[in-house]
Structures are given as structure tokens and as C-alpha cells.
Design a binder for these strands. Sequence first.
DNA 1: GAACAGTTATATCGCTCCGATACATCGGGC
DNA 2: GCCCGATGTATCGGAGCGATATAACTGTTC
Lengths: 195, 195
Amino acid sequence: MAKTDVLTLAILGILRDQPLHGYQIRKRLGAELGPFRALSYGSLYPCLRRMVEAGLIEASGEEPAGSSSASSRRARIAYSLTDPGRARLSEELANAGASSWDDDAFDVRFSLFAHTDAATRLRILEGRRSRLSERLEEVSDGLKRMHERHDAYTAELQRHGLEQVEREVQWLDRLIENERSARGGENNGSAPADH
Amino acid sequence: MAKTDVLTLAILGILRDQPLHGYQIRKRLGAELGPFRALSYGSLYPCLRRMVEAGLIEASGEEPAGSSSASSRRARIAYSLTDPGRARLSEELANAGASSWDDDAFDVRFSLFAHTDAATRLRILEGRRSRLSERLEEVSDGLKRMHERHDAYTAELQRHGLEQVEREVQWLDRLIENERSARGGENNGSAPADH
DNA sequence: GAACAGTTATATCGCTCCGATACATCGGGC
DNA sequence: GCCCGATGTATCGGAGCGATATAACTGTTC
């Protein structure tokens, strides 16, 4: 199975509802995932090219909302999902493997939760949680083993890192709780995969 | 001025006190900066090579390399700082420019605070703080402007990101406070006020 | 209406970094 | 004896980033 990298998945997701220009894709992605995770053009355009070559998206010359079809148009390329692209997106959204809760993949997967079915959402959240738990132990072990090498600043850095991860685990616990309690009441809240 | 990338700085810092093998450098760095920020051999060895070429470090210890002789000894290369390397480290530790509070540089700089003088420490902490403040506004503006595009999950992601940054700012505030209050006592250069 | 600044937009180059992988040696447990 | 998990060095392909170039459109100000 062709594996889909995070960037490709993010673009598939953002093009799900409307075709967009490269520039808009970048803005949208930056807005949804935060100012961190800002992808550069040096990644975006090559990735778009790859996706066109793979047949996941296609480039169309001109686009919408244009009240007047004026004559002067510069090179503006709107990308839209093809049928294979749409299929790949569904396929990828149904996949709840370990790659879904990697550091760099999790937030992209999470931002697409509105289009992910409830069971998969839960699996991903739990996967992410257990991943962070491992990390938690690792760091706190490291802290304990730091007896001798006592540099106040490095210790503080560790302590802070530990706290951050702990906080994140709490956040996940809250989300998991929500998912679980929402499962009894309604069917599954958000749109299930319509494929 | 030759600019020093973060990885180079981290290695200079870790070699400050003792010569180490590549393998040990990686372990040490992973332990001090946390399991995230784990650098791979694919970055480490090329960087070490660059540093040797630049004369910042030198490879000492066992020298197998004798293709002719029956040296059963395996290649184990201990790297140590040269005088230029030591000079570069001091120079870099005194520098409190914007590059010190970048996302990827700050924690490395922080982990070297024990060898950084008090004024520089304060400047870096404040720089980092103001950097994060900008980010804070950016995200919270984004959240406000998100009224229309109401996807519960992306909103939650934003909210959580915002909270993380807020938490980090609080941490910095605490550290800045500490630095300031420790200033009354001694105006020492490299002594970390152990609290 | 000209001049200027800022935003929208596409694109590439060089470099660094990462993950995977290969290889070799050592110590210890079974 | 034999495998296993550290220790240790090293490289390769590919992906991502920062900087940069180019250019047209949009809004503001005098």
C-alpha cells in the first residue's frame, strides 16, 4: 500500500471541501494547526507536484467567486481532489495505525477528526496517550538518574518538559472521556465516512 | 562571522567538560534535552565531520585506520574541543541575539545556562518570552476569527495549543523572576543559583 | 494619478536533518 | 557454546526548511 506522508494527508484534508491555491493551502494549514507547524513553500510546492504526478489532485486554471470573468489573469493554479485522491483520503482516515499518533502526525489526524468515525477517533486518542505515557516514564527515569549530574538549569529543563507531557496526557484523558460518554447518547456525532 | 548552527553548539557544549565518542554524545544530548530532540546519527556524524574540518574539534584516542596492519582494535573515536572550538563556544555563549530564542535553539541555550553569565541569561529568557507573546496573540486572534469555521476539533486543537504556550510563558516568568531576585546577591558570571 | 507598501501568488536552490540500514565488537546470561 | 542487547561508526535517499526571486493585485496617502 502506498504510504501517505503527513503533509500529503494534510493537503488532502484541506482540499476535501473546496479547491484551493497553493498559497491558500499554506495559510489554511497554518491557521488550523497553529503558527508552529507552518510549512514552507519549499515543502509545499514539491509536495503538490508529487501529488499531481500520483494522480491524487489536479490543477485547474481558474476558479470561483469570480463575478466578472475579466481578461487579465496571471498564473493562479487551483488544486482540487481527484476521485483517487478522495479515495486515498477516506482510506487514510480509516487507518488508525501507529503512524497516526506520531509527534508530527497526530495533530494533523486530530484536525481531521470531524471526518473520522468515532471508533477510529478513540483508537487514535488512546494510541497517542500510551505513546506519551512511555515518554513520561523515560523522562522521569532520566530525572531520577540525574542525581550526580546536578546542573540546576538542565534539571529545570527536564522538570518543565515532564510537566508539559503530563499536561498533554491530562488533555487526552479529557478528550477520551468525552468520546466515551458521547458514545452512549448519540450515534456518533460527526459525519461518518461516506465511502 | 561564521554562524554556528544549533547542533554544533550543542556538541561544543557537551564536549566542554570531557571528550566523548559520537555514541556518547548522542546519549548525553538525548538525556539532557529529553527524548524529543533526539538527534539521529544521520545528523550527528556529518556534523562532527564538519566540525573537524572547521577545526573546532579533533578526533583523538585510538587510531585504527591502519589498513595494512592487523589492528584488531575497532574504530573508537573520541572527540575533544580544540582551542578554536573553546573560543567559539565562549563567543557563542556570550551572544544573546534573536537566534538564541528560536524554537529549536532555546532549549540548547538554556541547557548551557550554567556556563552563561547572568546578564545574558536574562536577555535570552526575556527574548524567548516576547517571542512566545507574539505567538500567543497570533493564536488567540486566529481563534477569534474562527467563528464561522466552527469545527469542534480544530477549535479544541487551537485552544490546547494556546494553553500550552500560555503555560510556557508562565514558566519563563517564574525563571525571570528568579534571575532578577538572585541578582541582588552576587553578580557572578557562571555560577548557577541552585535553588 | 502616482508613488508606495502590503498581500496574494508561484517557484527553485542549497543545505540540513531524519529514518533506515549495515556493519562490527563487547559483555553477560542461559 | 550461543544468542542478545548494548556500544560504536558510518552512509544513503529523500523530505523539509529558509532564503530568495519574481510579479501582479489592492489599498492608502498626498
